[in-house]
Amino acid sequence: MATKDFTEGAVQRMKDFRAELNNLARRGPSKDLLRQIIGMGPEQGAQLADTLASSTKDSLKPLNTLQSQLGKESTPLGKTSADVPCDVGKTRPAPVVLSTRCRRTASTAISPAAPASCGPPSI
């Protein structure tokens, strides 16, 4: 019975979340802000959607602007997060294993014939 209650509760939370998103969408949030709330899921996202549902279009404008700025920063952050582990071996000794993509950097000391994926060229 507990599983059924949990499942029914989850279904109801999803229905409530959908209703809160529809209500919020009429108030003028940006698509990025809506995506962020949707990404938070029916638990946390529903709380934020419910809070913002009483907002006016004018009060949502600053949030839309901030969400846009977050979106613009997320792409360079993602690229940096992907590149930094591969750049480690270029400036200082690399850890034993960084990632599949960066193993050449860590393994050149063991085997000069390591497959090239990133890092400094072998000597």
Rank of each mutant, 00 (worst) to 15 (best):
G9V: 01
T91C: 08
K79T: 09
A109P: 01
V97R: 09
R13W: 00
I38R: 15
S107P: 04
A10M: 05
S99P: 12
D58P: 02
G9S: 04
A53K: 06
G119T: 11
D50I: 00
L98A: 13
T51R: 04
S54N: 12
R13C: 00
T65K: 04
I110M: 07
T91Q: 13
V88H: 04
R101F: 15
G45F: 03
K31Q: 13
A106N: 14
A94Q: 07
T75A: 11
V88F: 12
R27Q: 00
A46N: 00
S74A: 15
R103W: 13
K15L: 13
D87P: 12
S74N: 10
M1W: 13
L21R: 08
N22V: 06
K4N: 12
A2G: 10
T80H: 13
V97A: 13
E8H: 11
A114M: 08
K57S: 08
Q67V: 00
M1Q: 15
A82I: 12
T108D: 11
S55N: 09
R26Y: 00
S107I: 05
I37D: 02
I37Q: 01
G9H: 06
Q67D: 02
S74P: 02
P121M: 14
A2L: 10
R35D: 15
P112A: 03
P112H: 02
T3S: 08
L34A: 12
M40Q: 11
N23C: 07
T108P: 01
A2I: 10
T91N: 12
S55D: 04
L98R: 11
G71V: 02
N64W: 00
I37C: 04
C102P: 04
D83F: 12
K90S: 10
I123C: 14
R18N: 10
Q67F: 00
T7N: 06
D50K: 02
N23H: 06
M1D: 14
A25W: 01
A114E: 08
L63E: 01
S54G: 13
G39Q: 10
R18I: 05
T105P: 04
L21Y: 04
R103K: 15
S99F: 11
A2P: 09
S74R: 12
C118Q: 06
R103A: 15
G9Y: 02
T80R: 13
D16A: 05
Q69L: 10
S122M: 09
S55P: 03
G119K: 03
I123H: 14
S122K: 09
A25M: 05
K57L: 09
R13L: 05
L60Y: 01
T75W: 07
P112E: 00
T100Y: 08
R104L: 13
P76L: 09
A109H: 03
D32G: 14
M40S: 03
P93C: 10
I110N: 06
L52S: 02
G89C: 08
A82P: 09
K61I: 07
V96S: 14
R35A: 15
S111E: 11
I37L: 07
G45D: 08
S54C: 04
K72T: 04
A46I: 00
M1K: 15
I37Y: 01
I123F: 13
A53E: 01
I38A: 15
G119F: 03
T105S: 15
A53M: 03
K61E: 07
R18M: 08
A109V: 05
A46Y: 00
S122G: 11
T65I: 05
R104A: 14
N23Y: 05
M14Y: 06
K90Q: 09
A25H: 05
C102E: 06
